[in-house]
Design a protein around this nucleic acid. Structure first.
Length: 855
RNA sequence: GCGGUCAUGGCGGAAUGGUAGACGCGCUAGCUUGAGGUGCUAGUGGGGGCAACCCCGUGGAAGUUCGAAUCUUCUUGACCGCACCA
């Protein structure tokens, strides 16, 4: 074995603090990640996008994981010869900026842009292959101005409506609250009891696309099944019938009530009709009966929060009205019930307690009749629905012309009959509701319309766009600062010239994020999107983000793309061809002796497994591993990790721990392990001298090329943890092959560097520049191809089983015949012993895998 | 309630019908070091045996198969989504 040459320097450690910023500058100077707005005709484009962050002030480990995953894909696809677009921006509107303004007196814009500056610097330290030239924030007037144009286009295309809707209203803050901002029926900030209020709001007509949004899920073959399922549930298609019940006597002009049902077959089991508290008939009842009014007020005070509805007991109020059954002519009472939703179906239903759990609960409570109309095929004499409803398929009974039919046939038959009598028809109902986008907030995109007493709602003319937020705003008063700004809302009507008022509501921030991926294709254009750019780059080939956006953001973006198509901006429907949802980053949580939460850096783990507060003897309770959150202080600051270990270590660890779709545990030991490996590779590269061992040469070269194939396969399949493991194996093989020739060791290390480069790009460049000083940047190299000659083995190791149990392994030539293989296998002493002299009844040989002898 | 996903050493996980536990973390022993989260070597699923080897083992039960972590059925548990949706 040759002598080890003296190391290049005394301090033989990889200096990532110098190397990482240096390579980041090199990539930048070489323009490695820049692409044109319109890709050349012969380019194989690939658009990698991670969900853009909200600029809260600092990046967190979830961002590190998200952007590392995207960066590996981007760098790998680039090496594969794709023209890769990989942009970054900021989802910059939203409530936290207003809260900061209220609490600290900092203007939302100042706060937001300062946060962006800070987070941009942090992201840059990670060495991401991003094209920063495309950066924008949704709060830039250049961006939201284009959004206003889009909105007006949608308005013209008939995709926008202004209508009344019930909202959660906080009477103290004078604002609408989202459902998630209502906690136990109270406003999350003010603590005031939230009311339901009818407000005029802007709606985007997402329901017009409901059938297509559902159908097209089938075409998204690179989306996780569960996300598609969640979207399908959310869109909520259900088939049934609408039918009208005539009131026995009309009330305040209301002559009939329309209901939706998915079980028209159970119509003969009806015992009551129930309407929502917001239903017109409920209002009619309230007008005549103060008790009804009181009941409705109670329902309304309950709020629209679904969590509240869920816990509420089923309650009702008999209005005294009666409806006539379309087939029997019998009359049934009309109740107001708190479990009926005005927003679903028609806000009214017929109750069939025998075959629906809720109706059963309700009927039991108020002593309404429970009539069975479907019974199981094998029903005995004791069949009854008195105690519990029967909700499965069976045979219709007590139902006149439906008797004897099964449930699906009865549904068809009764719908035919309803249609014949013009009492109702078969319909498809959707759970999805139109998207209310009005928010009574300052820090959002102004809705570009003007309200004129004479002309009504007038769009802001194109030459007056963008409608820019005023800077001088007062956050000391509750409510919307735009609404009580002294001058901003007062404008002249663009149509008649008389004094008029600007819309003071701004858009839901989900609007901002519904088309940013399209804007990235031509971020500086004077139109929302330039068709040549957007139609060439879209769809996003790989979109990566958290599962928490599985429904809203992704559904809104799918809708927006369709709306943009309808308005002539794009030629495609689906924005995201591939979707990957990453798991969350978790950490142990810690509590001090007095129960206060502690940050990981305040805690010292002792060898016996216990923990103490650093620098003291205070015992620490080690809690559950759970998702990092500020409130539990179980967060780790990415900046501190990069300072201490470098970006490559953070990236390597986050990829190696587990499959990226699962939640991962951030552990100090894991980071240290990743750091050790980085330094180990660096040391390996310092000494590539070897020997002349031919066997070792062949073995190492085979390992190298098998690793190329294995890592490639792993990266293609998002199995980054497996790719890491294969690279570890290659490093182990290089270390073990000390007697292999220098050429083989260098080849192996070069392969290692290049295979690892999407994951640890800085170390890769650092080593490559010493291994191949004239070969340019790794970031510009094509991906490695394995040599087929070295992938092929000349012998195979076969497992030899007797009766399915492993008894020996044998080495056979690749071209060995079945007979040769069986002869070798049966000659193995262990196999002979296991056979116990019994005759072999069956011989199985699966080439390259296994031999099984059945005795 | 409805729908879905998952269950493998002390831990993260690998293997998608063919040698279970790759790779890493942790741990044990030894060596090394100008020791500050250092490097190297060996070991590490359980049980038995000096050893060669043998038995058991992928939440549990049954099944299909020459062969099952992998496929089927049932069951238990955990997690996720939806939910008075008529």
């Amino acid at each position: 074995m040759p002598d080890t040459p003296a190391p290049a320097s005394l301090d033989a450690r990889y200096d990532f603090r110098a190397a990482e910023p240096r390579w980041q500058r090199e990539w930048d100077a070489a323009g490695c990640f820049r692409v044109p707005d319109v890709p050349p005709a012969d380019a194989r484009k690939y658009y990698v996008l991670e969900m853009f962050p909200y600029p809260s002030g600092k990046i967190h480990m979830g961002h590190v994981r998200n952007y590392t995953l995207g960066d590996v894909v981007a760098r790998y696809k680039r090496a594969r010869g794709h023209l890769v677009m990989h942009p970054m921006g900021w989802d910059a509107f939203g409530l936290p900026a207003e809260n900061a303004a209220r609490e600290r007196g900092t203007h939302p814009a100042k706060w937001t842009y300062a946060n962006i500056a800070n987070m941009r610097a942090e992201l840059k330290r990670m060495g991401l292959s991003l094209e920063w030239e495309r950066e924008f924030a949704t709060c830039d007037p250049e961006y939201y101005g284009q959004q206003q144009k889009l909105f007006l286009d949608f308005l013209r295309a008939g995709l926008v409506e202004r209508k009344e809707s019930w909202v959660n209203w906080d009477p103290v803050d004078n604002t609408v609250l989202a459902n998630e901002q209502v906690i136990d029926g109270r406003g999350w900030r003010s603590g005031a009891v939230v009311e339901k209020k009818l407000l005029s709001q802007w709606f985007l007509s997402i329901t017009k696309f409901a059938p297509d949004l559902l159908e097209a899920l089938n075409t998204l073959d690179r989306w996780p099944e569960r996300v598609k399922l969640m979207q399908a549930n959310w869109i909520g298609r259900s088939e049934g019938a609408r039918l009208k019940f005539k009131l026995a006597e009309a009330a305040d002009g209301v002559a009939d009530i329309e209901v939706f049902t998915t079980r028209p077959d159970t119509l003969f089991g009806m015992s009551f009709l129930a309407v929502a508290a917001e239903h017109p008939l409920a209002a009619a009842a309230a007008a005549r009966n103060p008790d009804a009014a009181a009941f409705i007020a109670e329902c309304r005070a309950m709020g629209t929060s679904e969590a509240v509805i869920e816990q509420a007991e089923k309650r009702g109020f008999d209005t005294g009205f009666r409806v006539v059954h379309p087939f029997t002519g019998e009359t049934h009472p009309v109740w107001i019930a708190n479990f009926v939703l005005m927003e679903y179906g028609t806000g009214a239903l017929f109750g069939c307690p025998g075959h629906d759990q809720r109706d059963h609960d309700f009927a039991s409570k108020y002593g309404l009749p429970i009539i069975p109309v479907v019974k199981p095929r094998d029903a005995g004499a004791d069949f009854s629905v008195a105690k519990a409803p029967f909700t499965e398929d069976g045979v219709l009974v007590n139902s006149r012309f439906l008797d004897g039919l099964d449930v699906p046939a009865a549904k068809r038959r009764v719908i035919e009959e309803l249609e014949r009598l013009q009492q109702g028809q078969g319909v498809v109902n959707w759970r999805l509701r139109d998207w209310g986008v009005s928010r009574q907030r300052y820090w959002g995109c102004p809705i570009p319309v003007i309200h004129c007493d004479d002309c009504g709602v007038v769009p802001v003319p194109a030459d007056q766009l963008p409608v820019v937020l005023p800077e001088d705003v007062d956050f000391s008063r509750p409510g919307n600062p735009l609404d009580h700004h002294p001058t901003w809302k007062h404008v002249n009507c663009p149509s008649c010239g008389k004094p008029a008022r600007r819309e003071t509501d701004t858009f839901d921030t989900f609007v901002d994020s519904s088309w940013y991926f399209a804007r990235f294709c031509s971020p500086r254009a004077g139109v929302p999107v330039t068709p040549e750019a957007v139609n060439a780059w879209l769809p996003v080939d790989q979109y990566i983000g958290g599962i928490e956006h599985a429904i809203l953001h992704l559904l809104y973006s799918r809708f927006f793309t369709r709306a943009m198509r309808a308005a002539g901006h794009v030629t495609l429907d689906e924005p995201f061809a591939g979707l990957f949802t990453q798991g969350m980053v978790q950490h142990e949580s810690y509590k001090g002796a007095d129960g206060r939460w502690l940050y990981p850096e305040e805690v010292e783990k002792r060898p016996d497994g216990t923990a103490i507060v650093k620098g003291t003897n205070e015992p620490v309770t080690v809690g559950r591993i759970e998702s990092m959150s500020k409130s539990k202080r179980n967060t780790v600051d990415p900046g501190a990790i990069i300072d201490r270990f470098g970006a490559d270590t953070a990236r390597w660890f986050i990829l190696s721990d587990n499959p990226p779709e699962r939640d991962m545990e951030w552990s100090e030991a894991g980071v240290a392990g990743a750091s050790r490996f980085i330094h180990r590779v660096w040391r390996l590269a310092q000494n590539l001298e070897g020997g002349a061992d031919e066997a070792a040469d062949k073995k190492l070269r085979q390992t190298t090329h098998r690793t190329i194939a294995a890592v490639t396969e792993a990266l293609e399949g998002f199995a980054f943890n497996v790719a890491v493991a294969r690279i570890h194996e290659l490093a182990n093989a290089i270390a073990e092959a000390a007697t292999a020739p220098r050429a083989a060791r260098a080849e192996a290390l070069e392969a290692l560097v290049r295979l690892a480069s999407p994951m640890m790009p800085h170390l890769a460049e650092e080593l490559w520049s010493t291994l191949r000083p004239d070969a340019g940047l790794v970031a510009k190299l094509p991906w490695l191809e394995p040599d087929p000659a070295l992938l092929a083995a000349d012998t195979l190791t076969l497992a030899v089983q007797v009766l399915g149990k492993l008894r020996a392994t044998i080495e056979v030539p690749v071209d060995a015949t079945d007979e040769q293989v069986f002869a070798l296998a049966e000659a193995e002493p262990n196999v002979i012993r296991a056979l116990e002299g019994k005759p072999i009844r069956k011989r199985i040989h699966v080439k390259g895998r296994v031999v099984n002898l059945v005795a």
